[in-house]
Design a protein around this nucleic acid. Sequence first.
DNA 1: TCTTTCTTTTTACCTATGTTAAAAAATTAA
DNA 2: TTAATTTTTTAACATAGGTAAAAAGAAAGA
Lengths: 187, 187
Amino acid sequence: MDAFINYCNKISPLTAEAIEELSSRIKSKTFKKGQVINKEGQICRNFFFINKGLVKHYYPYKGRIFIIRFFSENNVFTVLDSFIQQAPAVFTTIALEDTETMQLTYNDIQELCKRHHCFETIIRKIFGMAAVINLKRIKEMFDGDATELYKNFEIENHHLLQRISLGDIASYLGISQVTLSRIRANP
Amino acid sequence: MDAFINYCNKISPLTAEAIEELSSRIKSKTFKKGQVINKEGQICRNFFFINKGLVKHYYPYKGRIFIIRFFSENNVFTVLDSFIQQAPAVFTTIALEDTETMQLTYNDIQELCKRHHCFETIIRKIFGMAAVINLKRIKEMFDGDATELYKNFEIENHHLLQRISLGDIASYLGISQVTLSRIRANP
DNA sequence: TCTTTCTTTTTACCTATGTTAAAAAATTAA
DNA sequence: TTAATTTTTTAACATAGGTAAAAAGAAAGA
């Protein structure tokens, strides 16, 4: 829990009262490797902070899967569209490793934002950063051919390279496993 | 200006004081068709509301251009990454039609957020929506082949179809003009 | 109205990447 | 350690869509 409060404080300072209320609301929850955290069609009612582990967030389409993003320790995540609109998710989220999280419900976030301006500031900044990250992802998807996409991924996600399978990297880049294997063979 | 206040109030109510301060800070600015609003490399210092007109937001890469998004009347826009981080933009924004906007500076937004919790709530929601829209765009980019991408675009942007050139639509979909022309020929 | 410029379509050709299937390698379980 | 399962590589083939260039059409300026 301290890790999350720390994470928040780095973004913008929390008052003592906000920390107290936050602490009383936040709950911990762990997921086993391979466990579904939120399935498509299901409303995502929680906002997570990852203490430890790795998660993939994907879009199942015509039998293939397309990975939107990976989330790892010391980051927040939620099924953004589903959470914000409290509507069924089009994405599925599953744990790629045993994962420990802290969570706040939709209602917790609403109440904390309403009661503590300092917390609303933090959420505003988190949402802003999420928008920027998604924007960057759109840009990257345009960046040239499969080889360039992979080179880019290697640079941007160096720290995760060994933890993610080739198949999942291919799904993230929107190319086939075979193509990615070819790229690795002829660098 | 009323249009923007209206837009805000629909998201979450503003107090009278917030409206007053907002009114005193907001400025109007118009752009001629083809005029650059913000160029890559340049820091975007403003947050815009479009009263009238159409804008394209693109990523110039290796001689080609890739359009991230179109913005039209009754919507806010800014070069999100550049604005939030006050860092040089990687995108360029230009007016596709004569465009009338209202604008607030980075500093205006910071001050308004700090002084009026109600305004911070609105910005939080706007950023949240921006993140969701970008997420949706990522998803759409995975949606099948060029033909499906175009069908999708036709549905989602029906109201803009007649205002955007074939070349720009192709740039938005990440396909060549020739391919799009082929698609239109063989529906 | 005629000319110039910009946009869209068509044609021809080529290459990157998808698909399917099978072999090889690596990881996990027994 | 061996067996079972999963992941990665390799090969052969098919094709969607890219590039370049020219023709046709539409819009803008003189």
